[in-house]
Amino acid sequence: MDMRVTIPNVISQQTNAFVIKNPEKITNTFTISEESKAIDELRMWQQGQLADLKAFLKNYDMTSISTDELKQVGRRLFDSKIIDEQAFRMFISGDGASDAEGRQTNTHVKFNAIALFDEKLDDYLGFVKSRPDVARSQGIPEYIQGMVDANRAINALAYFAHSSKDDLSVEELA
């Protein structure tokens, strides 16, 4: 009796990490240099929320962060309704590395998230521009907006994480 087991032809879901072309890049079109713009970007006006966010961010460097850490940051932003589901996906996907079963790998490896998010967006916009059929597909504009929002958020976070002020209140002129 032949006891051989036939294994169906399974396509691997393995992907390599996104290769960041310019890992030293810390500024881009989404870079924020003014506190009021960072606050606007994160839609947070209450001093308590800003202080809590700043304290939380002290543990993270957006230019040297792992997928595991990006998931924590993304979860905090999503739960606070600062980012939507599309932007949250950018945070939790990290560098995109996965094994043959599609499970994320090397989630502890640090990378520059500012450069990663910027280059992922640039690459995707280039892909969509080269494929007009894709550009018209359902959900693509929302996906692109999520990528833009993730870039804006990561740059606002980088601003707050590196801000030397303890008080993040917005000063108003009378």
Rank of each mutant, 00 (worst) to 15 (best):
D68F: 04
E101F: 14
Q86A: 15
F91N: 00
A97I: 09
R75E: 15
E101Q: 15
T107D: 02
E69H: 02
D68W: 04
R75L: 15
R76T: 11
N106W: 03
N106A: 14
S98R: 09
K71C: 10
D68H: 03
A100M: 12
T67D: 00
F78K: 11
E101R: 14
D61E: 11
N106C: 13
A100Q: 10
S66Q: 08
R76A: 13
I82F: 04
I92D: 10
R89T: 09
D61Q: 12
G96Y: 03
I82A: 01
E101L: 15
K110N: 00
R76N: 12
R76H: 14
Q72I: 11
S93N: 13
K110E: 00
R89F: 04
N112D: 07
L77S: 02
G96A: 05
V109S: 11
G94K: 03
T63E: 04
T105D: 10
D61N: 15
V73L: 07
I82G: 03
F88M: 09
F111C: 03
F78A: 11
N106M: 14
N106F: 12
R76V: 07
N106T: 15
E101V: 15
S64W: 00
H108C: 02
T67P: 01
Q72P: 04
Q104H: 07
L70K: 01
I82R: 02
V109T: 14
E85Q: 11
G74W: 01
G74T: 02
E69Q: 13
K71V: 15
V73W: 06
V73N: 08
L70C: 14
L70H: 06
L77I: 10
D99I: 09
I83C: 04
D84F: 00
T107S: 10
Q104L: 11
T105Y: 03
D84C: 05
I92S: 09
G102F: 11
F111H: 03
G102E: 13
M62P: 03
A100Y: 08
R75G: 12
K110D: 03
V73E: 06
D79Q: 14
Q72E: 12
I82C: 00
I83P: 04
R89P: 01
K71H: 06
G74D: 02
G94H: 01
N112M: 08
R89N: 10
K71N: 12
R103C: 08
V109E: 13
H108I: 12
G74H: 00
I82S: 06
E69L: 09
R89Q: 06
R89S: 08
S80H: 00
V73Y: 03
N106L: 13
S80Y: 01
S64R: 00
N112W: 04
R89K: 12
V73S: 05
L77F: 09
F88K: 04
D61L: 09
H108E: 14
L70Y: 07
F111D: 02
S93L: 07
Q86S: 15
V109A: 12
R89A: 07
F91G: 05
E101Y: 12
S80R: 07
V73P: 08
S93T: 06
D68K: 08
S64T: 04
R89I: 05
D84Q: 01
T67F: 00
